[in-house]
Design a protein around this nucleic acid. Structure first.
Length: 590
RNA sequence: GGGGAUGUAGCUCAAUUGGUUAGAGCGCCGGCCUGUCACGCCGGAGGUUGCGGGUUCAAGUCCCGUCAUCCUCGCCA
């Protein structure tokens, strides 16, 4: 190091000097956030991660340097108390100022693309292009600090429960099921590819076979699918797995982790245990697999009334094996004819043929359905089924069960938002369990795992040879929070015979299975303990805990909706030599 | 892949029915100013109206295409 180095180094940060420091001679380093030149006296607001401190220059000193916005400087001088008239009560450091005796420009700055401390909302495009400036804003620094606190709290909570953190490969093997893989060509093996992990799923199960017993990892995951506000092509999971356990053991660990995390990062005390409800119950009561439990407005089965209603659409739906369901919007929340037309559009968009409604009343009810509710007894019966009171607006859907649930589930969500039904003081965590094991894909003409192919079935026999895969429940579960899915997991298959049977139902041939999962099946046959795990979407939970709905705000260097990095301009073409090295020839359409 | 919104100065936005030399605030540059803290005052520079084509006497404005950003459906075991 040069002999002169060190005299510019800070003794304090820009956020910590107080009235009690008056008289000390200090050195601050930071960015020039604002300049106020009064000719004979010159003020600088000096910024760093910790705050803002006013620096005062006299004419002599200010004349020696040319300062621009965002210049990085070092200033040394005594801390002075401000006169009462000059105190700035809006700033932590507002009672003092640093009177500079030495000022050094450590690094000049080009004119920034936007004003760092400005009030104007800068476009996402500009923010991402100059992300290093965007991250200089205190709001972004707070977000990242909050993220770090939350991750740290989770790490501590897992470690306290005896979990060990293990890193798993980023260069791994392509998987046939699930999301599209990001591929990486191999130089050494011409024509072959690694894949970036969609999750560390297989590795964490292998760690259980290895006997690691309690694993966790802050794991980066990659999925080459289209983006959303809450989805980036690379994202972070808090991933975990444990051995010799079942659902309740995993729930207990996570409930403890969430309680400690919420306490440390948010200062909130969570009530344990979280409620559990089976997937089937969630779908029946709320129409969705991630219900917002902060308000009611539940879906009700109206078959007992509908079957004798005389309304052809309803009786027809029931006769065809479908459902007639409804929900009651409490009377204070009025829905106009126009509102209902809007909701009907939503319903139609989701496959409903229409949206019947009824203004509940024992006498003189109204709405298109009123003529099918001819008397007080009939009205009473319907209102009881709906849990409706006098004056409530009741909405109905009839038809195929999946469609009816989807329509009313969506209406429930929209009405909840519209009328702010959710009690904001509630932290509504819940475990949704026993999702279906398989889903049928009409286009592909085969069954797919609803969760992933290593998920244990509720019944180890898989219902026998003749079972209908659609009817099988799995031992998978989601953690739901205020209507958001935070993460999911399952009890895994630890028996090779059951794993074989699942592959069989998925239509994966023995050759294919051997090629793609051979090592994994062998591992399961090499002493696999019963095990189960869970992974939480970290970006989502950090954003949610900050009251934000876009995870870009909590990711340091996120990508745009077209998966581009506007700052470093990735992806980008590469030199032909580089392609040749990895045996790639590109064929670009057009 | 589909749908919707947006694109004008470095940033955030305005510009009537298609009609003069495309404006404002902030930022930037120059000057003045000893108590400001969004300092103030005076002056100034800065535009391929995303790009390409078309209609028109005339296009930021209308039409077609295209690109980018945002939201969203499909997709995301």
């Amino acid at each position: 190091m040069a002999a002169a180095a060190g005299n510019w180094r800070r003794t304090h940060t820009c956020g910590e000097l107080r009235h009690t420091d008056v008289g000390k001679t200090v050195t601050l380093n930071g960015w020039v956030a604002a300049r106020r030149n009064h000719g004979g006296i010159y003020f600088i607001d000096l910024r760093d991660r910790y705050g803002l401190t006013q620096v005062v220059l006299d004419e002599k000193l200010s004349a020696t340097v040319k300062l621009g916005g965002e210049y990085v400087i070092s200033v040394t001088g005594p801390v002075h108390a401000r006169d009462a008239a000059n105190v700035n009560p809006d700033r932590e450091t507002g009672r003092i100022e640093l009177v500079a005796e030495r000022l050094e420009v450590l690094s000049p700055s080009r004119t920034p693309a936007f004003v760092i401390d400005g009030d104007e909302e800068v476009s996402t495009e500009t923010r991402l292009k100059f992300r290093y400036l965007d991250l200089r804003r205190s709001a972004m620094q707070k977000n990242l600090a909050h993220r770090a606190r939350l991750i740290s709290a989770m790490r501590k909570a897992f470690e306290a429960q005896g979990f060990i953190e293990v890193e798993t490969p980023i260069l791994t093997k392509a998987t046939p099921e699930g999301a599209r893989d990001y591929l990486v060509p191999s130089r050494v093996h011409p024509g072959e590819f690694y894949a970036l992990p969609q999750s560390p799923q297989i590795f964490k199960q292998l760690l259980m076979v290895a006997g690691l017993d309690k694993y966790f990892q802050v794991a980066r995951c990659f999925r080459d699918e289209d983006l959303r506000a809450d989805r980036q092509p690379e994202f972070t999971q808090l991933d975990m797995e444990m051995s010799f356990v079942e659902e309740e053991d995993v729930f207990a660990v996570w409930e403890q982790v969430m309680r400690e995390t919420w306490r440390a990062a948010m200062g909130l005390e969570l009530k344990l245990p979280f409620p559990r409800l089976r997937w089937e119950e969630a779908m029946e009561r709320f129409g969705v697999d991630k219900p917002d439990l902060r308000f009611g407005l539940e879906l009700k089965d109206l078959a007992p009334w509908a079957s004798t209603s005389g309304f052809g659409v309803f009786t027809g739906a029931l006769a065809a094996g479908g459902r007639v369901m409804g929900l009651a919007v409490p009377a204070p929340h009025a829905l106009s004819r126009k509102d209902i037309t809007g909701l009907e559009e939503v319903a139609k968009g989701l496959g409903a043929s229409g949206l019947a409604y009824w203004k509940a009343a024992r006498e003189g009810s109204s709405g298109p359905l009123a003529r099918f509710v001819p008397d007080a007894a009939s009205a009473e019966r319907l209102m009881t089924l709906l849990g409706a009171r006098e004056g409530d607006t009741c909405l109905f859907a009839a038809g195929d069960q999946d469609m009816v649930r989807k329509v009313l589930g969506e209406l429930r969500v929209q009405l909840g938002k519209r009328f702010s039904l959710a009690d904001k003081s509630i932290q509504a965590f819940a475990w949704v369990t026993h999702f279906p094991l398989f889903e049928y894909d009409k286009d592909a003409g085969r069954w797919f795992s609803a969760h992933h192919p290593f998920t244990a079935p509720e019944d180890w026999t898989l219902g026998g040879e003749s079972a209908d895969p659609a009817q099988l429940a799995s031992r998978s579960y989601d953690l739901v929070y205020n209507g958001w899915e935070l993460g999911s997991g399952s009890v895994r298959i630890h028996r090779p015979d059951v794993q074989e049977r699942v592959f069989q139902i998925l239509g994966i041939t023995p050759e294919e299975r051997q090629r793609k999962f051979g090592f994994f099946v062998e591992a399961l046959a090499s002493g696999a303990p019963p095990h189960a795990g869970f992974a939480m979407g970290l970006d989502r939970i950090v954003a949610l805990s900050l009251g934000m709905d876009n995870i870009r705000e909590v990711v340091a260097f996120p990508k745009t909706a077209s998966a581009a990095d506007l700052m470093c301009e990735a992806p980008s073409p590469v030199a032909p030599e580089q392609l040749a090295e990895v045996h790639i020839r590109t064929v670009v359409p057009g």
